[in-house]
Nucleic acid binder design. Structure first.
Length: 217
DNA sequence: CCCTGATTCGC
DNA sequence: GCGAATCAGG
């Protein structure tokens, strides 16, 4: 899959929103997590707190580190906080200071409501029209019967995909046991899914189907 | 084990 | 430029 301008824009946008490389890769499709990370770096996107990178630095850095061990990598400023909430408190607008320049627009005191929207500030007359916080959409759980069972959405490389029940039934789900490595099913279901091929002479011809079933070669 | 991002290096 | 492999940490 090629890095088209559109996909690069999507990558930039999602990276800056703070989505993980895995999420971005999944969303874009056709690329791996590593590809996303590699591309992000090549694009010069700002790196983010990595579990690896921030291993040390207590009081060590300011104390004795004017000498740069590596002159190549520019010093990375501390990552900005992902959300900047308005200051919790503000002094009243300067009515007692006639000489003071006009106060810059003051951030309103707002609180966060359920769902992440910004509540209207007290005394605020016009609706703030809160920008909906970017949220990652996740599929809703289909039905209560499926609770605790392995649904289609739970499938991955390492759990058994053997279907139990039938699609459309309320409790249709999948086995979910750990797979037999290298196979899509657990050991038990591999036993059902795969059968040793017998020599021709040992094969029993299938009984004739009443409706003239699929042709057997 | 699962996950994360960073880095390297052969292509 | 690309991304799998690898590293290193949570």
């Amino acid at each position: 899959m090629a890095w088209t301008d559109e996909r690069i824009d999507q990558l930039k946008s999602m990276w800056e929103k703070g989505m993980t490389a895995s999420q971005i890769a999944e969303e874009l499709g056709g690329v791996s997590r590593n590809a996303v990370i590699g591309k992000a770096h090549r694009l010069g996107l700002q790196s983010r707190p990595s579990p690896v990178r921030e291993g040390k630095d207590d009081a060590v850095v300011p104390a004795a580190a004017p000498a740069e061990p590596r002159a190549e990598t520019a010093p990375r400023p501390a990552p900005a906080p992902r959300v900047a909430l308005p200051a919790p408190e503000r002094p009243a607008p300067a009515a007692a200071a006639p000489d003071a320049p006009p106060a810059p627009p003051q951030p309103q005191i707002r609180s966060i409501g359920p769902g992440g929207f910004l509540r209207q500030a007290p005394g605020e007359t016009s609706a703030p029209i809160p920008p909906a916080p970017p949220r990652r959409l996740v599929p809703a759980k289909p039905s209560p019967e499926i609770a605790g069972k392995t649904s289609l959405l739970d499938l991955n490389e390492r759990i058994c995909k053997w279907p139990l029940g039938h699609p459309g039934e309320p409790d249709f789900h999948f086995c979910g046991a750990p797979v037999n490595p290298g196979f899509p099913y657990c050991v038990a279901h591999c036993g059902q899914a795969y059968q040793a091929q017998l020599p021709r002479r040992d094969r029993r011809p299938p009984p004739p189907l009443p409706f003239g079933g699929p042709r057997v070669r």
